[in-house]
Amino acid sequence: MSKKTLTLMSKDKQLFNIEEHLAVQSVTIRNMVKEDGASSVIPLPRVDSETLALVIEYLNRQQAPEEDEDYVKKFVDERGEIPTLLELAQAALDLDIKKLMDAACMKVADLIKDFTLEEVREALRIENDRTPEEEKAIRDEFQWAF
């Protein structure tokens, strides 16, 4: 197998090298390689260097297939901060790495599951922008739930 290396560039213009046969776990990269050989640098305009370093670490993992699932779970568990996980999920979406995307989203879902409404808003810095009409619509729709 050829050990061709690809270069990925983060949003903040840092360069990361990775062997092509590992990089093609990303469907996005695989398609690029198929199309034009992806000889030059592959830019990832939405992925910062911190997150890209994590993605590279993930792609470089040397796991036996039967242990891979556990590894992916542990990988996201160890990065249990919501902001990191959200960045990771977005990077996995852009690069189309399904396993990583699913695991990161699952972890965030687990974390926010037991939060109250206010805690979710606080953790994700989301403002409550609902209008009184919307509040009423929700109340009407879920009348049976209260």
Partner: peptide, 11 residues
């Protein structure tokens, strides 16, 4: 219970 009530986008 929650997610839907967080904001308009989530709803």
């Amino acid at each position: 219970e929650n997610a839907e009530k967080v904001c308009t986008a989530w709803r």
